[in-house]
């Protein structure tokens, strides 16, 4: 039996209320991050440890994905370019595609999945087992120690991984181009970088900073506010990934538009 209109109105009102409450809480959480990030102490050792967890431990997955993307994208693009006798454009096409869009997005999505879920689950589990409260009662600021360090790590590691992803993607692409067109490395690089501008590099790196910040802050927010025991931990990990991916795509559209305006 369908719900009565009045009941439906209540459900919609609750949904809207919960949405805006979530946005408000999220904004406050982000505000606290900005405030705490510039206040000492900075827990450098923990930031470095987190950079290792986020950056170094993601390298195998980024390597595999970036390398395969480079090869596959080159293989898929070849027939279209070959129809116009323009296979010599492959290096520049791949380089532009990787740098402008593929590498930032691939890196962000992998980090949202791997790092986001890991942070969401870790903080969620700490929350439901009172480890965060244990820090508080020991006069340690858990927000600063857990949230700020992890978010700084993702903010700096995602751009680094993006650059690395570009490198391995181009390596994959070069191997394919070299195998098919016998292009030398020097010629591949020359052709690839000829179409790249400073704006491409700057926009991709800045975009990755934004993605890294988004992934870190969302994962920490979801984990830090986990409730309802172990079920809540799973929900926090899942929500971290889904929300981070959603926001990354929205940011991608907005940033592409901004860069387009700057270019024209």
């Amino acid at each position: 039996m369908p719900p009565k209109p009045r009941r439906r109105t209540v459900v919609i009102a609750r949904g809207v209320d919960s949405f805006f409450t979530g946005v408000y809480d999220g904004a406050r959480f982000f505000g606290s991050f900005l405030l705490e990030a510039v206040r000492p102490p900075f827990h450098l050792r923990e930031i470095i440890r987190q950079c290792y967890e986020v950056g170094v431990r993601s390298i195998p997955l980024i390597t595999l994905t970036g390398f395969i993307t480079g090869i596959v994208f080159t293989k898929q693009s070849r027939p279209s370019l070959a129809a116009f006798g323009a296979t010599s454009w492959l290096p520049s096409l791949i380089t532009v595609a990787l740098l402008r869009s593929l590498a930032p997005l691939i890196t962000a999505l992998i980090c949202a999945g791997k790092v986001g879920s890991s942070i969401g689950a870790e903080l969620g589990s700490m929350k439901v087992t009172e480890q965060i409260e244990a820090m508080e009662v020991s006069a340690i600021n858990p927000f600063k120690y857990l949230v700020v360090t992890r978010t700084i790590a993702t903010t700096f590691m995602v751009p680094s991984l993006m650059i690395y992803c570009c490198f391995v993607g181009m390596t994959g692409s070069y191997l394919n181009v070299h195998g098919n067109e016998a292009t030398s490395l020097a010629a591949f690089l020359k052709s690839g970088f000829s179409t790249i501008t400073y704006l491409d590099v700057a926009s991709s790196v800045s975009k990755s900073f934004v993605f890294g910040l988004t992934i870190g802050i969302i994962a920490c927010y979801k984990g830090y506010n986990a409730t309802s025991g172990t079920e809540g931990v799973g929900r926090a990990a899942n929500a971290s990934v889904v929300l981070a991916m959603f926001i990354v795509f929205i940011e991608e559209i907005l940033i592409v538009q901004i860069v387009h305006w700057l270019r024209t």
Partner: peptide, 19 residues
């Protein structure tokens, strides 16, 4: 925080940092 350094709190489930 200065006061919390003078007051210890032992949690029901110990709340040890599992990492």
């Amino acid at each position: 925080n200065a006061l919390r350094r003078r007051v210890g709190f032992s949690f029901q489930n110990s709340a040890l940092y599992d990492s």
